[in-house]
Design a protein around this nucleic acid. Structure first.
Lengths: 158, 158
DNA sequence: ACACCTTCGTTCGAATTTGAACAACGGGAG
DNA sequence: CTCCCGTTGTTCAAATTCGAACGAAGGTGT
């Protein structure tokens, strides 16, 4: 560790990028949360669960896999899947190859709920993020944040 | 509204940018939260309160101003300022020009806590975000996300 | 077969966040 | 000066989140 020396503080550009990231992230989450809740009665987290399930083969995923994709804690996922189960949007069944395993599965209602919620959500993401940026900015953002995600995933499981 | 037509879904690049943003944001928050808590006993939110106060003239800000800068709800701020007050890192005093107003002020202890927490936090932000990106990517990110933030702030208060 | 370490999903309590409701005040139109 | 409307910060109940602890099972080496 080099914690004896003065740390390298962020210069103006670096700070701008970091602040921009934090602020944009918070504002965006806040807006999307409100829109989804008002429009579909779903939280962003719940919506994302439906999205990942519908994108998975068999419309189903192991709990742990799903938690990884969502970047959330296992207990947090347990809670949200229970909520979605009560709403009838997701079902649980046990894993054939592993007695401990639990598989979350999208129900027909869940598919319907996603179909109804998606257009409004995508439209807002487009309006607030995608269409604000140029094609080049989008490409750089995708590549850069992809690298950041990879970096973060990597030393998560050494 | 053009909700009668099929919405414009996200193409591959757009989706990559959006997913990258969400995933990086979640992973980053998770890591920073853990590091700050372990290292300084502060949540990210509490740390940011100290940062904004220390950057403000007189080390103090009105509650509403602070809530704006933090992109959080008023009630959320009230809660966190109360926590910080109990820790002795922040004080409350009433606003001279507005009887309703409450001014949060950094205490000497708060300044000290920030001084101790900052190096580790900045080092991690650098390691996980700043140093992963090139100078160009940083510039584009700052500019792009600045525009997104501006867009979001704008139609928040019409 | 045995011990040992890991993984899986849930449960639990504590901490945090939110929006709505609220009381008190500011500030301008008339 | 009043009436009215927007603002300010807090309180409240409800919802969500997290980490630690847990029981139960997988998987490996011996």
């Amino acid at each position: 560790m080099s914690s004896l020396n003065e740390p390298r503080w962020l210069d103006q550009d670096e700070m701008a990028a970091w602040r921009g990231f934090v602020v944009a992230s918070n504002l965006l989450n806040r807006r999307l949360e409100r829109q989804l809740k008002d429009d579909s009665g779903l939280s962003h987290q719940q919506y994302e669960i439906l999205v990942h399930l519908s994108a998975a083969p068999g419309d189903s995923l192991r709990m742990t896999e799903l938690a990884d994709k969502l970047v959330t804690s296992k207990s947090g996922l347990t809670y949200q899947v229970t909520q979605l189960e009560r709403m009838g949007l997701v079902g649980r069944r046990s894993c054939p190859s592993d007695v401990r395993g639990v598989i979350a599965e999208l129900t027909e209602q869940g598919r319907e709920a996603l179909r109804r919620a998606a257009p409004g959500h995508v439209a807002l993401v487009r309006e607030l993020l995608i269409d604000v940026l140029t094609r080049e900015q989008l490409a750089v953002l995708a590549e850069g944040l992809g690298a950041v995600s990879a970096r973060l995933r990597q030393d998560e499981t050494p």
